[in-house]
Structures are given as C-alpha cells and as structure tokens.
Design a protein around this nucleic acid. Structure first.
Lengths: 280, 280
DNA sequence: AGTAATTACGAGGTACGTAACAATC
DNA sequence: GATTGTTACGTACCTCGTAATTACT
C-alpha cells in the first residue's frame, strides 16, 4: 500500500470517475484503473461497484477513502512541518533600533543570499544588545559598535533626519532647523520608528507628538493636514507631489550611525552575511 | 513521498543503523541509503548527521520519524479496518435454541465453505425467529419449521436426551427412564444448553438443578460427584472412563428435532449454505 | 455514437543488487 | 581488520502509455 494509491483514491472520490481522476493525476486511465485494482487485491476487497462503463464507490470503498484521507492529512502535516522548518532556517532574526537600516541590510544581502529572509524586531538599544548575546536574535543593528570581545561590529549606514514642513510653515524657507526651533509644535510620527521616537521626545519635551501606526493613514494625514513630520535621507516616501519641503535638522542627535553586530561564534550562514556586509 | 520510505525511516530509527534496517527490510544497504537520500531531497532537509561510517538522526530526522509513525499508524488502522471487514463478511450469525445443531451445521459446511465462520447465538425460540426476520441473524435453528412464507426451512438433525447416571444410582440399571422417575433429584447441567434448560425445569418442577457455566469445571464435577447429569446422541463428551451409564429418557420432550431456517431473500452466500444443508 | 472501464502488449524508467571505495572504530 | 555508509554501473522488474475491446447510456 502506498501513498500514491491514497492520492488516487481521493482523486477518484472527488472527481467521480476514474477517467476524470486520471486526467487530474496526469496518468492514463488504464494506469489508474490497474493501480486501484492492485490496491483492491491487497486489501482483499472490491472498493467499487463496477459496470462496464462506470465504477462507483461501495461501502468498503468509502471506508478506504476515509482512511486514505487520514493518511493524506498526516502527509500534509509532515510536509507542512518541513516547509516550516525550512522557512525558519532561512529566516534570520534581526534586532534593530530603527527600521531603515534593516531595509538597507536587506537590499545589501538579497541578491547575494537569495532565499534568506530577514525578520526585523524593533527594540530599545539595550534590549537589542541583550538579545544578541541571548542568541534570541542572529544579528543586531545598534547605534554603537562592538561592546564585547565576542562580538563583531561594522558600520552599516548613516541616517539624517529632516523636518518635513508644509510649504507655508514659518520655518519652511530655512536652510536648517534645530530641535529647539521646532519644540512646542505638533508632530505626526509613525509608531514604528524605533529609537527616533525617544530621541524626538527627549529633544523636544514640549512637543505634541501624534503617533500613527498605519502607514497609509499616516500618508493620508501628511497630505491633508499641516502637521509637521519627519523624513530622512533613506526614507523612500515619494516626497514629490506633496506641498512640503524637507529641511535638514542641525542637531547632532538628528544624525544616526548604525552598526551591524554579530556574535563571533554565530552559525556560518549568519557570519557569511556579516562578512558580506563588512566588505561593502 | 511514499509509505515505503516511512517504513524505512521507522526501521532505521528502531534499529539504529541503515545496515540493520536494510537487513530487516530485505533490501540492500545501498538501496536503503539511496531511498533515504531521495526522501531528504524531497523534504529539503538532511535527516541524518552522517560521518563516513555512521548516520544518526538529527532534529529534522526525529521530526520526520515522528510524522512517519503517524502515517504508519494510519496505515495500520486502515489495514485493521479492512481485516475486520473481511472477518465480518466471512462470519454468519446463527441464532439457535441449542448448541448441538450448530456443531452439526459447522461440521456439514466447513469443508464445502472454507473460511466461513459460524457465530452462534443461543436464544429462546421466539427470539431466534424474531431475529431471523429482523435480519440480525443470518440463519436460525429452531424446533419448528417455516412459520412464514418468506422463510425456507429444512430439518437438520434430531437430538435425544439420556440421563447420565452414576453406576450405583437406583435407576442405573433401567432400560429407559422418564422425567417423572427423575423429578426431585439433584442435577448438574451446563448453563449453555439452550432450550433444554427450560424443558428440564418444566418437566421436573421439583428437581434441584445446579447450573455450571464452565465446561472443565462441569466435567470435573461429573467425575467427582454423584449428581445426575444429561448427555445426548450428539454429545461428544468421552463417556468412557467415567463410572456412569447413559439411560434413554422416554418422554417425547426428550427428543428434539431441529430445523434450519433462512429468509428467502437472504444474501447469496447465506442461501448457498442453506441449499447445501438442504441437500444432505 | 459516445463515454467509461478493462485487457493486451511493448517500452521505458526507476530503483534494485553487486562491486568498488572511503573512512571511522 | 571489521563495520558502516556512499558512489558507480549494469540489469531486471514494474508500471506506464498506446491500442484494441467491451458494454452501457
């Protein structure tokens, strides 16, 4: 008894005739007919009530189909379990303090390591570092390099913050602005910006920051309100078409340098990615 | 993916090495090795940690073995279900008023219908008839023939009752005895004698009847006590070696004629058996 | 006539066994 | 050296597809 016969039995039960099932299974009608006959011989039971041009399931056949589907269900479970396993093996967990460097990391590695999936987890810096050492993330993206001898770190990118002001804003014509200039205003900020959120709150204690989790809602609000928001040198938002101007922020805190870190004894495939990034 | 590979995986897990499993499966070592490699290719996972002369299950392999055993359990369930089905199909339910005619029926049919199992159910006569019409038994053995036009009946055998008396019993030298002669005595009777039990109680209202369900205990008691018991012309108990004599009982009730009955529209295999018996 | 299933026959492919090889215990 | 697993190679078997046949709608 083989699974192929169970698949055949299921197909016949679903399609109603041996011919239709044979077509579905991409084998000839005689081949399917013979295979089912072999199964009947092995089970010691006719599974179909046959006339010369029809074969319909009898009671034993229905019993066989029910059991066949149990087998196929378990086969599916097994294949799913292995598909999951493979996906997990292709996925690297990346702890990061901000989303942008993961985009960059993905862009850097996607063609060199096809099939590898980077699963970003945005966290506070100390938590990212802790998880790297925990091995609960494979890679870490932080604002400071190597803090332990068992780690390897390399600079991955810098990100510069701009105030994204409505064209009529009082600061829209400036060459640069500072957080001090902006403090007290109302801002619209995406929730998922990592460390930037805390940095903004620290530097503009009197600001009214409206968080928005949904990107499409956020973009609608940017279009339809006068709320100040932020972009960076790597923000891929199409800034054109909007009646806004991006003004560089002069404070040191508005310029972030990100480092990619990995444990020295990480699995080979993780170290391979680190080495690849380090060489660019 | 095929069940054969699941059997192979299970065998390797149980036996510890590919070589031992190959021997168990009656295939060559290379064949098994290749088959497992095919499975690994299909699952996209190595299942064994291999050195040049060993292959031990890794985590993925253990996962595969667990799932394989689920599949094999399903297969076993299916095969068991069909074995059951076949056994049920080979078994005919026989409702009977006494055990002896079923022995006779079995003897008559065993070589003509090999593989057919007769499963006797001893019941009161009206219940036997009711169940035949219910179709909850396939054949009926009763004391009277055909009571409905949809039934066919044929005489199957007669059974004559003898008092089986200790040699020193007051009636042991008689040529015949009657129930009247015996009434008031103590008797030992097997529980499973069907209608005979009720007949004895009716004909000997003052008798002290000791029922015994277990045949070996019964025979021990026959040997070691002076209790009167009964035998018939078809009782296969070895009457020799016992210090007892069998005396015919003269009453009409001590002579039973049994009829085999079947419904006219019973399944062919049931009617075949009836016809065979009818012809003898 | 057309559909659906079975039987016959020849061919092709797959997986087998034998043999050779490699490496560990 | 014995055991265990892998690779190479030739072969045999098994199942497939095509074609012919039967019978039912």
């Amino acid at each position: 008894m083989e699974l192929e016969q169970m698949r055949q039995l299921d197909a016949i039960a679903r399609r109603g005739t041996i011919s239709a099932a044979a077509e579905e299974l991409h084998i000839s009608q005689p081949a399917l007919s013979r295979s089912i006959r072999r199964l009947e011989r092995e089970l010691g039971q006719e599974l179909f009530a046959r006339t010369h041009n029809s074969a319909t399931l009898n009671d034993a056949g229905q019993l066989a189909v029910d059991h066949a589907r149990d087998l196929l269900r378990d086969e599916r479970m097994m294949l799913d379990a292995f598909a999951d396993l493979e996906r997990r093996q292709r996925t690297l967990l990346v702890g990061t303090v901000a989303p942008a460097p993961v985009w960059h990391l993905t862009a850097l590695t996607v063609e060199r390591f096809p099939g590898t999936l980077l699963n970003p987890v945005t966290l506070p810096e100390d938590e990212v570092e802790r998880r790297l050492m925990n091995r609960s993330v494979d890679l870490a993206i932080t604002l400071r390099p190597q803090i332990l001898p068992t780690m390897r770190s390399t600079q991955i990118m810098t990100e510069d913050l701009y105030a994204f002001l409505p064209e009529g804003h009082r600061l829209a014509t400036r060459d640069t602005v500072s957080f001090a200039d902006l403090d007290g205003e109302s801002f619209l900020v995406l929730s998922e910006v990592g460390f930037w959120m805390g940095m903004l709150r620290r530097n503009m204690p009197r600001a009214n920051i409206v968080e928005q989790a949904d990107r499409s809602v956020f973009e609608q609000l940017v279009r339809s309100t006068e709320l100040v928001c932020f972009v960076t040198n790597v923000t891929q938002n199409s800034r054109s078409g909007l009646e806004r101007v991006a003004v560089p922020i002069s404070d040191a805190d508005a310029h972030a340098t990100f480092y990619l870190s990995v444990l020295a004894d990480a699995p080979q495939r993780v170290r391979d990615i680190y080495e690849w990034v380090d060489g660019h």
